[in-house]
């Protein structure tokens, strides 16, 4: 009980220093909803980044206009640090915005979103640093920047040129906010686990996620059963093939995502040799490309 009041106090003293984690998400979502984005729900599977969500990976293909914003829990098994590193997580949150076609004022829209969470361009140093992006497992390529605010990388900004091996026409703009980092900056916190998740109830990021980081790090690095993972990967790949035969794009794409995650786990487990790696990536990409074909064919 005593512990809890103490936490409440910490949360309070931080109040006014910046938005809580959940308030930050809400503010950004509201902002983008006002720009005509559909607020889509997170995808219910283990994926490495918001780009893999069908709301981006598939919807950014084809001609129909599309605008969406969503939070996507993202898993990068090899990035786990047992809950000990103040900056690294194997599970974290991205806020993803996808605008198709990318509007001419997309940079200005983005700057205004930063202002909405208290980062006014006049007071801060906001820069666009060259960062061309490629997602080999998804057969994706784009040009853009990483956006820095006072030296801190707060977003990835990409004009998609290619997704699932297909040319993007029209070109979409993708904006990805690294929510933990952004919140740490806004709140002035040096350790991710000290983030104020919510003020009432008074919760820190650590309260919610530290245990998971510890346990999943053990799982990812030393416990996950390699043989099972290998067979899971093969199963998912086979299942995807079978679904592609039946021309069921979305179920097949799910299996492709599964395969991708099993690959990431195998990688974290140290079970992917240097020469085998390109082959795994190629196999996943191949599935993604075929899913896209069927998706586009309707």
């Amino acid at each position: 009980m005593a512990k809890k009041t103490q936490k409440a106090k910490t949360a309070k003293t931080r109040k006014g220093r910046g938005l809580s984690f959940q308030a930050l998400i809400l503010t950004l979502e509201r902002y983008w909803i006002a720009q005509g984005c559909a607020r889509v729900q997170p995808y219910d599977m283990e994926i490495g980044a918001g780009t893999f969500h069908p709301a981006t990976a598939l919807r950014a293909l084809g001609k129909e206009p599309w605008r969406a914003v969503y939070v996507q829990p993202s898993r990068r098994p090899a990035d786990g640090r047992y809950g000990q590193n103040p900056n690294r997580l194997q599970h974290y949150y991205q806020l993803q915005v996808i605008l198709k076609p990318a509007p001419a004022n997309i940079q200005a829209l983005y700057m205004a979103s930063l202002a909405a969470i208290g980062l006014e361009a006049e007071e801060h140093d906001i820069r666009f640093l060259e960062d061309d992006w490629a997602g080999p497992t998804l057969g994706a390529k784009g040009l853009g920047w990483e956006v820095r605010c006072d030296g801190l990388e707060v977003s990835q900004f990409t004009y998609f040129q290619q997704l699932c091996g297909r040319e993007c026409d029209p070109v979409s703009g993708e904006i990805t906010y690294g929510l933990e980092r952004l919140a740490m900056y806004v709140q002035g916190v040096a350790n991710v686990y000290d983030l104020v998740f919510s003020e009432d109830p008074p919760l820190s990021y650590g309260d919610l996620y530290r245990r998971g980081e510890r346990e999943f790090s053990h799982y990812n690095f030393s416990v996950a059963n390699i043989e099972k993972l290998l067979s899971h990967f093969a199963d998912a790949e086979r299942e995807a093939e079978a679904l592609l035969e039946r021309r069921l794009a979305l179920p097949a794409y799910d299996q492709c995502l599964k395969a991708s995650h099993f690959f990431n786990l195998l990688d974290a487990r140290g079970a992917v040799g240097a020469s085998a790696r390109p082959d795994y990536i190629k196999r996943v990409r191949h599935l993604a490309m075929r899913c896209a074909d069927i998706w586009l064919a309707k």
Binding site: N87, E123, H124, D125, C149, D150, G151, L152, Y185, A190
Partner: peptide
């Protein structure tokens, strides 16, 4: 440039 310096110092420190 108070905010900018503070931000950069914090990133450098991290």
């Amino acid at each position: 440039g108070k905010a900018i310096i503070a931000g950069n110092e914090r990133v450098a420190k991290a």
